[in-house]
Design a protein around this nucleic acid. Structure first.
Lengths: 347, 347
DNA sequence: AGGGTTTAGTCATTCGATTTAGTGGCACCG
DNA sequence: CGGTGCCACTAAATCGAATGACTAAACCCT
């Protein structure tokens, strides 16, 4: 409890030297004891003298000084463009944070709103802080040209890949997701399945990847692919609503619908309700979603493919911390994580 | 581009000394130029020599060394229990991150799942890193007994207050929110207004605060307070659904309903639809919500009181950075931020 | 020319740890 | 009895920047 007092009388946090004096040993010994350094024999009597002094002074090693000496900041940078637009993007951060914290690393987050100049500034700040590695994340799955600085230190791409696949990355397995979502419905006997996907500039892989998986699944079940059942929109509820009204007016309407987002599903539910169609009896609905909030609040509860954003974040931080000592071109693993199917009541 | 080379041939990032040699000046001068130190006269010729060397060597000051010397880590700690349960809690972080970043501070996030031992460990880690200040946040508005460590350095409570109000804090203005939500409906002529609030152990202030505001508003408009129109539940859609079915069966059903969460509103919409009641013609609906995702996806779009979590986070980080140099008991401002009304189509 | 002031810097110390190289003392061995 | 090895430590250098104390040279004024 007794903090050391400087010559000006100001309370100063105790240093290793203070502990050393209190324990009657040298600072070196204190360092050895505190870090439990292997290969140096220090008798238990001395160790406990040191620990007693540590407790008594309420000593806490100064991480900054340690980082300077060891050239390790125990910090990993997290650069990302716009979290604003994507609600689930927060899960990428939370997952990475979780894994980093478990490995005694801090996550230094830098948000850049996508502007290259801001991105440059963010990299500058992180490099200045001598982060041990960097996670570069995007709010939607896409191909990016990451800042050049990433090649000089351990780095992982999160929710994106680079054109030449030269950096390790972790992303959604869109094709697999699309296939598995479709298979869930095919197994229940559905053969005419609507697909309402998000196609925004810059968000290509997800929409088209899932479509590809959708076709593969249909093929595997010898079901006909009908282009007119596929709609590409902006991912909004309004979009889902209008598409379904149009879709169900057809001579041969679909018996199931896959929604690219849970917002789309909300619109789909509204449209089906207005048409007096009962979910899942008349039409089954399946959606991709980030968090369960919407899915569990709909009636009947919405079955979803749960996008594994938190797991992706965890993977990125885990891979990075595991390879901080690896010689520089890191193995460019291209990891994908498929979305688990969460069965509720809409299928 | 030419990085300095150590005696073992390993590429080492350049230091101030390297820059000094390249520019033909002393490290001190480099420091003066880089920090644009006031009061020392250095001619432009020398300055540009230094900057040229900086660019040429791709020099970047080592923040760790600087922090050690200046005893400032330019980092603020963010301690929080469970982000897991509360989706909007992420906005508290994002807001704080935003403000901290703008002021050249890093946010060191420590998640603690509420366990006091984990909380202690989190504090330990942050203090070890010599954070300049700490934000202590909870996922729901409540009264807390914060870790003792908070009294020794600048700290702000976020989304909570301490019993004796001795620490600065920023939180929701529940009473005001409740009053204003009710007034919105009263002004539209509603006099029988249902209130479905969340009452969970530990989340007292919000539910009961809004109820208090609700009563005040009714009083101000000379409307009768009817206890039977108030329901306390768990905040789920199912809760909203069942309450409304029961409520509308009454001889004198409410003409408007206030929902504590947007999930409740989803259940309310479903129940009203089943009862063939049209929103807002037959019944108006108003909810409190974190993000707009659900509100804009409902039909008709849900009018809400938008909970200002990001702003609260921003305020906390802003207040903290503005008071880092303040002598220690910080002015214990108890800031509240009211939720703005976002008019959509349900009222 | 001499004294004072300004200009344009430099030197050496400091922040608080880690780490390399080394040292005094003791036991043991031949 | 001298040498060797081990034990239990310590001294001093180092990480990279910031900074208080100084100083050499130039300039100004009388």
């Amino acid at each position: 409890m007794t903090a050391a007092v400087g010559q000006n009388g100001v309370r100063r946090s105790p240093t290793m030297r203070d502990v050393a004096e209190a324990a009657g040993v040298s600072p070196t010994t204190v360092s050895f004891v505190i870090n439990d350094r292997a290969g140096v024999g220090i008798p238990d009597a001395t160790r406990s003298r040191v620990w007693t002094a540590v407790k008594q002074l309420d000593y806490r090693p100064n991480a900054t000084a340690r980082h300077l000496r060891t050239r390790r900041s125990q910090t990993i940078g997290f650069v990302t463009n716009g979290l604003v637009d994507a609600p689930f993007a927060a899960d990428l951060i939370l997952g990475a944070q979780d894994a980093a914290w478990a490995r005694e690393h801090l996550l230094a987050i830098a948000t850049t709103d996508g502007d290259p100049r801001a991105e440059e500034a963010a990299m500058e700040t992180l490099l200045s802080r001598r982060v041990d590695g960097i996670i570069f994340a995007t709010s939607s799955h896409r191909v990016v040209t990451p800042p050049a600085g990433l090649r000089n230190l351990p780095a992982v791409l999160l929710n994106c890949v680079c054109a030449d696949r030269s950096l390790p990355s972790v992303a959604l397995d869109d094709v697999e997701d699309g296939r598995r979502a479709t298979e869930v419905l095919l197994r229940k006997g559905h053969r005419r399945i609507g697909l309402i996907e998000v196609v925004r500039p810059g968000a290509q892989p997800t929409g088209s990847g899932r479509l590809e998986g959708y076709r593969q699944a249909l093929g595997a079940f010898y079901a006909r692919f009908d282009e007119s059942l596929v709609h590409r929109g902006d991912g909004s509820a309004a979009d889902g609503y209008h598409v379904v009204r149009e879709l169900m007016r057809r001579p041969q309407p679909p018996t199931a619908i896959i929604c690219g987002t849970d917002e789309i599903a909300m619109g789909v539910y509204d449209a089906l309700r207005e048409l007096r169609l009962v979910i899942p009896r008349d039409v089954a609905v399946l959606a991709f979603d980030g968090r369960g909030a919407i899915a569990t609040s709909l009636r009947p509860a919405l079955s979803t493919m749960a996008l594994p954003f938190a797991d992706m974040g965890r993977w990125a931080a885990g891979y990075l911390t595991d390879h901080l000592d690896h010689p520089m071109p890191l193995p460019a693993v291209q990891q994908t994580i498929a979305s688990p199917f969460v069965e509720r009541a809409s299928v």
